[in-house]
Design a protein around this nucleic acid. Structure first.
Lengths: 170, 170
DNA sequence: CCAGTCACTTGCATAATGATAGTGACAATG
DNA sequence: CATTGTCACTATCATTATGCAAGTGACTGG
């Protein structure tokens, strides 16, 4: 997926997907969040070809989402652990999981989220940190921010609603 | 990416990624949320080969994330509009965008989220709907839910923390 | 009639993936 | 000390997907 446009390079969604948008990547991170650290952990859980796994772990390490460290000296064995940057993708995975449970689980959620201490069911939603208002399609807008290039500011001079195209005639 | 294991098929994250995990898919949905509806809209914004775009739009339509409708009769022209299911991915994209702004934007966010009415900056975070407690790595656990197969319940008899492997020795 | 728009499709070279097998380092077992 | 086993890979090769470029068909507007 070779992307070129300047604006595209600046979009934080596109940037993120450059790191985690490839096949398997988010599943690897999911398993890392569930405790997998060794090559074989990942391979067994995911059932993916080792060649691909090897490449992905390499990439994730380069990008700073995982960190390699030796966990055994005699035959040198290494494990992969999440960095803070990598672990910070947890909310994204939770949002994705909530969507999957809402739309792809006709018989009820196969996996659900709970509070780790109390075991009480929790439901992930995306809100504004300050007001706690839910952010869903049509209730947020995007605009060029402090790190935007002149190019982007020109192309996006005003805020744009982030939501479904209204049913207005074209 | 052919996945096989039974558990894998039940994971809502894996299920979601089956629909939106391929290259370009989430970017197409992003642009749909930003108002793109026609084939050319998407092509111009994304700069992707039309063959791939065509396939993706087809898939997204089959999966019920987009809907085709005629918007011009004479030469029959169709547009692609988000369904509710598709638009409901907005929170996932917002979470991803927030991550990108946090970790991949050293010069400040190129794009930021605002309230569509007031224009006030908002910051997407994932919280529990009821308690509004922030859900980040280590503050949630997963467990088999109502729609889980017997197989899954056996494999995952108790809740599992969703977070970084603690720095405990292996 | 001719150029232009729009939404694709076709063909082909290149790249990525999936399946399977093999390697090298060591440990434990017999 | 030979054999088997574990772990983390690498190598090979067929299959699949993507990127690029060009072409098609339906029409409009001049």
């Amino acid at each position: 997926m070779r992307r070129k446009s300047l604006c595209e390079l600046e979009c934080p969604i596109a940037r993120s997907l450059d790191l985690v948008g490839e096949a398997w990547t988010l599943l690897i991170l999911r398993d890392a969040l569930l405790g997998a650290t060794r090559f074989q952990d990942f391979q067994e859980r995911l059932g993916m070809p080792p060649s691909t796994l090897s490449r992905r772990l390499e990439q994730l390490t380069e990008q700073g989402l995982l960190e390699r460290s030796v966990y055994e000296e005699k035959p040198v064995r290494e494990r992969y652990q999440l960095t803070e940057k990598g672990a910070d993708l947890a909310p994204v995975l939770l949002a994705l999981s909530a969507w999957g449970n809402r739309w792809l689980a006709p018989d009820g959620p196969p996996l659900e989220c709970v509070d780790p201490e109390t075991g009480v069911l929790v439901e992930p939603v995306v809100v504004d940190r300050r007001t706690k208002r839910e952010l869903s399609a049509g209730r947020v807008a995007l605009r060029a921010g402090g790190g935007a290039s002149r190019e982007l500011k020109r192309k996006l001079p005003t805020q744009v609603l982030f939501g479904r195209a209204s049913e207005v005639a074209p």
